[in-house]
C-alpha cells in the first residue's frame, strides 16, 4: 500500500474539518484532542487515531483498508507520542466491535457497554489498583460503603452525608474526584475531606483514580454537552464502579439527594439502573438544610463571590472555613470566572 502517515496540525481549521468529516462517516465526533495522526492516500484520509493526554480515541479505518496493518502503524505512532509525554498508562475509547483489534495489540478490557468499550495498557491496571487497595486497607472482610465526592469545597452537607452513611456500614470509602476541573484544586479538596472526617474512625478518604469519573471513564461529565453522550458515559463509568469496586466489598453506594443540578440528578438515575446488576445498592440521603435552605457547595461558592463570610460560616465546618480564609487566590479566581462545578 502507498499510504502516508501525517500528524495533523491542530491549529489548522482546514485539516480539522477534513478529519471531522472523515470521522463523521463512522458516527464519531471529534472532542478534545491534543494529537491526531491520519493515514492518507493522495489527499484522502483512510484512517485516523487521536489522543487527549493518555486517552486514545477517534480511531477509524475505512473498511476497504482494514486488515492491512494500518491499525498497528497508527497505534504505534500515538503510543510513542503518549510515552514521550510521560504517559505510561494509556486508555482507549472505542466501539465494542473494535475490541479484538486492541486485544491483539496488548490492551486489556476495563469495561464494555452496548455502545462503548474502554481498554487500558501500561505499567498499571485496574486489577492491580483494586487488589492494592484491598490489601493496603484490609477491605476484604468488612461490609463497606462508598461515596464519590467532588466537594468543591467541603461543606456541612458533605459532612452530614458522610456521618449518616458511615453509621450504616463497617467501613466507608470516600473517593475524592481527582480530576482537576473544579474551582478548588484536588489537593485542597482532598485535604479538606480528610480534615472534615477525622472524627469518624471508619471513614477512609482515597483519590478517585483513573477509574471513577475521570477523563477516561467520563469525558462528557467535564464537557457537559449532549445528553445522549452523557448517559452513555454515565453507564460506562457506573458499570466500571459496579463490576470492579464491588470487589472491594462495597455493597452500598451513597449519594446526596440532588434537587439542584440536573446532570448530577441524571447520573443518580443511571446509578439506580446500573448498580443493582452488580449486587450494589444505592442509597439516597436527603440533603441537610440550614435556615436558608439546602446546603450545597455551589451556594458556598456564590456566597464567597459576594464576600458574605458570616453566611459562609453557616455552610461549612470550621476546618473548611479556616482554609477559605487563607485561600485568597482561589477566591479571586472564583470571582473572575464562572465555573459550573
Amino acid at each position: 500500500m502507498i499510504e502516508s502517515l501525517r500528524v495533523l496540525n491542530l491549529q489548522s481549521d482546514e485539516q480539522l474539518k477534513k478529519l471531522k468529516s472523515f470521522l463523521n462517516d463512522f458516527n464519531l465526533t471529534l472532542d478534545a484532542i491534543d494529537y491526531a495522526i491520519v493515514a492518507e492516500i493522495g489527499q484522502t484520509i483512510i484512517g485516523s487515531c487521536c489522543k487527549h493526554r493518555n486517552i486514545l480515541k477517534c480511531f477509524a479505518i475505512r473498511s476497504e483498508y482494514q486488515g492491512l496493518g494500518l491499525t498497528q502503524k497508527l497505534l504505534t505512532e500515538v503510543a510513542y507520542k503518549a510515552f514521550e509525554q510521560g504517559y505510561y498508562h494509556t486508555f482507549i475509547f472505542s466501539k465494542p466491535s473494535n475490541s479484538e483489534i486492541f486485544l491483539s495489540l496488548g490492551y486489556k478490557e476495563i469495561m464494555t457497554t452496548d455502545e462503548v468499550i474502554l481498554m487500558e495498557k501500561g505499567n498499571t491496571s485496574i486489577k492491580d489498583y483494586i487488589s492494592d487497595i484491598e490489601r493496603k486497607y484490609s477491605l476484604g472482610s468488612t461490609m463497606n460503603g462508598a461515596i464519590v465526592m467532588n466537594c468543591n469545597p467541603f461543606t456541612l452537607g458533605h459532612q452530614y452525608l458522610i456521618e449518616t452513611a458511615s453509621k450504616q456500614v463497617d467501613r466507608l470509602i470516600i473517593f475524592a474526584v481527582e480530576e482537576d476541573a473544579s474551582t478548588f484544586p484536588f489537593k485542597d479538596r482532598f485535604e479538606l475531606m480528610i480534615q472534615g472526617t477525622k472524627h469518624l474512625d471508619n471513614v477512609l478518604v482515597l483519590p478517585s483514580s483513573f477509574y471513577i469519573i475521570s477523563q477516561a471513564t467520563f469525558p462528557n461529565y467535564f464537557l457537559r454537552d449532549k445528553e445522549h453522550a452523557f448517559t452513555t458515559y454515565a453507564r460506562l463509568d457506573l458499570s466500571i464502579f459496579g463490576y470492579w469496586f464491588s470487589q472491594l466489598n462495597v455493597k452500598i453506594r451513597f449519594v446526596g439527594e440532588e434537587p439542584l443540578d440536573p446532570m448530577t440528578d441524571m447520573y443518580n438515575q443511571t446509578m439506580m439502573e446500573v448498580l443493582p446488576k452488580y449486587g450494589m445498592q444505592l442509597k439516597i440521603i436527603p440533603r441537610k438544610e440550614n435556615d436558608s435552605g439546602v446546603i450545597s457547595a455551589s451556594k458556598v461558592r456564590a456566597l464567597l463571590k459576594e464576600d458574605r463570610w458570616e453566611e459562609v460560616a453557616k455552610f461549612v465546618p470550621k476546618t473548611t472555613y479556616d482554609y477559605l480564609l487563607r485561600a485568597d487566590e482561589i477566591i479571586a479566581k472564583l470571582k473572575k470566572y464562572d465555573s459550573q462545578h
Partner: peptide
Amino acid sequence: KPAQAGTMES
C-alpha cells in the same frame, strides 16, 4: 529514563 523502541507491527 524511560525509553521505547520497536513497533506494534507484525
